[in-house]
């Protein structure tokens, strides 16, 4: 009996150790980077493509944790990420200049948010400016003719939405008390599905929208697009090595260099062309170098951070010795 028990415990013990070694192996062996990112980037699948490419060519595994921008930054503040890939300049600014955690910020890509809604467009916002469109939706919502679905999850898209409401003269804190304004509290895809079911309007990033639309999961139409107010800029930031010295800062900087290189920018600019007939993201680096497109000024105005009266992609005190990235 005692022998049998001992044998059983040894077998079970071996199984547990074996299972642990087997599933922990990819993590404990080799180099890796933990990246907190936003759902709008991750759900398109582009980051998986980048991870495969980077693993093959640079032998570093990229582990993505996807959440809203607010949550991604929160994870990073607790030291649970080597890098963040996010899209909310105001939150990035706080993360960098107030919290002092974010460093080496580079703008890597941009695209446009779109206001989408049902094909019959009950509020009649087609081709209006974003702020006019929102005011029209409020009027129409209050007379029970249309509804609005807000992300309500502190993501980059949600923060953009709140800014647009403010610009249109409303406060999202007040609007959320009204019955036609619904908060989904989830990611972009789920929110699009919800808007689709409710025949409601919502603000979406173009990447997720195109994917859902081309897979016939939704039949919402783009009603307002491509305007300065709807610009969406993605940036990458490393974590201040003085605060979390045990994080992999050097690998993080290498990955940032890769993202802004022609190699990385090409992957970004070509992703989705085959499937959707247009890229989901536009590379931002060459644009700011050539400095001819009017969008360059839009990006500068929207996504640069102010420091001592000037605006910067990354203010000088937060470059952590990587000044050669900002020539």
């Amino acid at each position: 009996m005692n022998l049998k028990m001992m044998a059983l415990i040894i077998v079970v013990g071996c199984f547990i150790i074996g299972a642990l070694v087997y599933i922990e192996w990819p993590y404990r062996s080799g180099q890796r980077l933990q990246i907190s990112t936003t759902t709008s980037l991750y759900d398109t699948g582009m980051l998986d493509t980048i991870a495969d490419y980077y693993k093959q060519n640079y032998r570093v595994s990229l582990f993505f944790i996807s959440a809203g921008t607010g949550q991604a930054i929160e994870h990073a503040k607790r030291g649970d990420a080597d890098l963040v890939l996010v899209h909310s300049p105001s939150m990035e600014n706080t993360f960098m200049q107030v919290d002092g955690v974010g460093v080496v910020r580079k703008i890597i890509a941009y695209n446009f948010f779109v206001i989408v809604g049902p094909e019959d467009d009950p509020a009649g916002i087609h081709n209006l400016s974003p702020t006019e469109a929102l005011s029209t939706i409020v009027t129409s919502g209050r007379s029970r003719q249309s509804e609005w679905v807000s992300r309500g999850d502190d993501s980059g898209t949600h923060s953009k939405e709140k800014k647009l409401w403010t610009k249109a003269g409303f406060s999202s804190d007040d609007l959320r008390e009204e019955s036609w304004y619904v908060e989904s509290g989830t990611g972009m895809g789920a929110t699009l599905n919800m808007a689709n079911q409710m025949r409601a309007y919502t603000l979406a990033d173009i990447g997720t929208y195109l994917k859902y639309r081309s897979d016939n999961l939704i039949d919402l139409e783009i009603l307002v697009a491509q305007s300065k107010d709807l610009l969406n800029v993605y940036s990458v930031m490393a974590i201040n090595p003085e605060i979390y010295p045990e994080l992999n800062f050097n690998n993080a900087v290498d990955f940032i260099k890769f993202l802004v290189s022609d190699e990385g920018q090409n992957i970004i600019g070509n992703y989705g062309v085959g499937d959707y007939g247009q890229p989901l993201f536009y590379p931002a680096v060459s644009l700011s170098l050539e400095n001819t497109d009017p969008i360059t000024d839009w990006i500068r105005e929207y996504a640069y951070l102010s420091y001592e009266g000037q605006s910067w992609e990354c203010p000088p005190p937060y470059r952590a010795g990587q000044d050669n990235l900002y020539l």
């Binding site: 993590y27 759900d43 582990f63 944790i65 989830t186 895809g189 789920a190």
Partner: peptide, 24 residues
């Protein structure tokens, strides 16, 4: 787990993620 591809992605987290991605 954080739902990391190839490392901590399990059946339930895959369902949650791929639903969001529209891969029904």
């Amino acid at each position: 787990g954080g739902n990391i591809y190839g490392y901590t992605r399990v059946l339930t987290t895959t369902i949650a993620l791929e639903t969001a991605r529209g891969e029904i």
